[in-house]
Structure formats: structure tokens, C-alpha cells
Amino acid sequence: MTNPPNNAAAGRASAAGPVITCQQLTKRFGDFVAVNGISFEVAAGEIFGFLGANGAGKTTAMRMLCGLLGPTEGAATVAGCDVFREPERIKQHIGYMSQKFSLYEDLTVRENIRFYGGVYGLKTAAIREKTTALLQRLGLAAERDTLVGSLPLGWKQKLAFSVALLHEPAVIFLDEPTGGVDPITRRQFWDLIYEAAARGVTIFITTHYMDEAEYCDRVSIMVDGRIDALDTPAGLKRQFGVASMDEVFLHLARGAKNVE
């Protein structure tokens, strides 16, 4: 799954090889090993599903890759930056969105865009230009001065996703982005994800919806801090001899010790 690099972020990332690399990445909290020597690579423009039951270590792994948490051992790079030595530089090159959408409800659509643009150090002129383009693309031009709190959930979600991409990051981390959203809105949201991936943005997504796992290029499944399976959805189903991702997941997660 490689796309012609058509923006700066993707160009930078693909020139340097894989966008995310992990070798034996480990995080211990005292005696507890939250993440136990995980290794994988994610290519530019790939949609990488990061699955696992609650308590399997997904969040800890993701926090390390976002530069929020220092790893104990191993090595990892994100967008060419070392997780150990340059956690702050990583933050320039990644976007992040969680289930909570992370927009300010008491700010208007435009103010939210301007704020996050400013936080990522974009120039005022660039912010203005991107705001117009973004609103046009999402069909939100008429709502630009509406408070985000009064927008429907689906719109908030799309807006949050677009805002997270405003600074053209090489990777976007999506932490259960579609939790609590109806299937139609979810489907529309995935259209946005595909669009972004087609532009060369690497998508790193966690989800509990197995139908969404099917949409990913490759899927990893974490159990007790280790990655127990990593392949394309079709490959995984073949490997475990089952018909759906649901069964793959259940098959692996049943053996888990650390379940919340």
C-alpha cells in the first residue's frame, strides 16, 4: 500500500523508509510489564490497526510512540525521530485524535481551527487558507461561526479529524475514534481516513469494532503486552482458519491474563 507522495509530510517520511519502527519496545511500571518487547514497522500511507483487549497494553504503547511516555527498553522511531531522545520533536510530526473528539465546544468551528493551527505553530496566513479549504471540503462553510458544541456528533468527529491533520503530520494516531458513533457516520469517517491515507498520511488506529479492523491494511493484536499476531486481515483469518476478524480476536484474547 504505497501512494505517490503528494504532500510534504509524506515525502519526508517515505524518503526515510518506514514511518514508524519499533524494535523490542518495552515499558515496565515496577514489576508490571505493560508492553513486552513489541516490534513492527508501519509504512507511509498505511492504515495500521492496533487491536487488543482493554489492559493489553495498547494505550501504553501508543503513549510511547506519541512521545508522552519514555520507554524502558528497545528502540523506536516515529517520522524519523527517536522515541528515547527526541520525544518533543515527534510531537511536531504527529496528529492525535481520541474518542472524545478533543475540540472546544464553546469555541466556534473557525476558532477551533485557528487555535490548533496556532498550537502547531502555523502562520496566520496559512491557517486562514487551510481553514477555507477545510470548511469547503467538509461542507461546513456555512457553519464556520457556529459553536462546535451545537454541531451534530458526526460533524464534530470529521472536524476533529481534519483539525488533527491541519499541520500535515506524517502519522495520525486515532485512539478509538469511532466510539459511540452510529454505523453510517462511522462509514463516512472511514472515507476520510482512506482519503488521508491516499495522500500519504500514515494511520495508526485502535478500535474495538472488528468490522473496522477489516478496513485496515494490516492489523496487529496485542495480548498481555505482546503482539501475538500481525498481518493483513485476510492473512490473519487464513492463519487462524476462521471466517471473521471477530473470531481471530476472540481466539487470541481468550488466552490473556491481564484483562481489565
Binding site: E88, S98, L103, Y104, E105
Partner: peptide, 14 residues
């Protein structure tokens, strides 16, 4: 509570 702090912490803002 609203999760915006998480986003701020992931952003380049110190």
C-alpha cells in the same frame, strides 16, 4: 474531562 488536555500534551506545546 473533555480530553482536550490529552491533545495539548501530544502537541508541540510544552
Amino acid at each position: 474531562e473533555t480530553g482536550t488536555m490529552e491533545v495539548l500534551l501530544v502537541s508541540p506545546m510544552r
